[in-house]
């Protein structure tokens, strides 16, 4: 199922990227978002067209957003990197509850810049970006548990 919030996030993701098309299937639901063709001749449908329809045939395997991203990334030659959690712990977007978040979607970051904190056994680990680029998506929620290797940030590498 897709709710409006998810669709909005996808539209935003698409708008802020060089990807021309995203298609995601989830059970019997499918969504495809496409951007207008650009001057350099990229494929597109002329408008942002959300398609939501039940798929009657055998459902294809469910894919996560990041898996889907990797395919168009190759197609469009886009440099998308995923920062994953180096440990199990609790994810925090800022250094303290009343502090500004380290980064927000759209921010340009450099390699070595602190992106978030993962707390494990009361040790607050500052997690530094392995890439320079722009934050496309923050995949984890503040103060939530994250697993080892869970995707935290999608970065469009510079």
């Amino acid at each position: 199922m897709f709710d409006l919030k998810d669709v909005r996030r996808l539209v935003k993701l698409l708008e802020n990227s060089q990807i021309s098309e995203i298609e995601i299937s989830d059970g019997d639901r499918k969504i495809r978002l496409a951007k207008p063709a650009t001057a350099d001749g990229q494929q597109g449908l002329g408008a942002v067209v959300p398609v939501m329809q039940p798929v009657v045939s055998q459902s294809p395997p469910t894919a996560s957003i990041s898996e889907e991203l990797e395919k168009p990334q190759l197609a469009a030659g886009l440099n998308v990197r995923v920062m994953k959690a180096p440990m199990v712990g609790t994810f925090y977007t800022s250094s303290s509850p009343d502090a500004e978040p380290y980064v927000q979607v759209g921010d340009v970051v450099h390699k070595g810049q602190v992106l978030c904190i993962v707390e494990a056994m009361k040790l607050m680990n500052e997690i530094e970006s392995e890439y320079s680029g722009r934050i496309m998506e923050i995949m984890a929620e503040n103060a939530q548990a994250v697993e080892f290797d869970q995707e935290l940030f999608i970065i469009e590498a510079a």
Partner: peptide, 10 residues
Amino acid sequence: GIIAENVCNT
């Protein structure tokens, strides 16, 4: 209480 922060400098 105790707090511990793991940090890295330039």
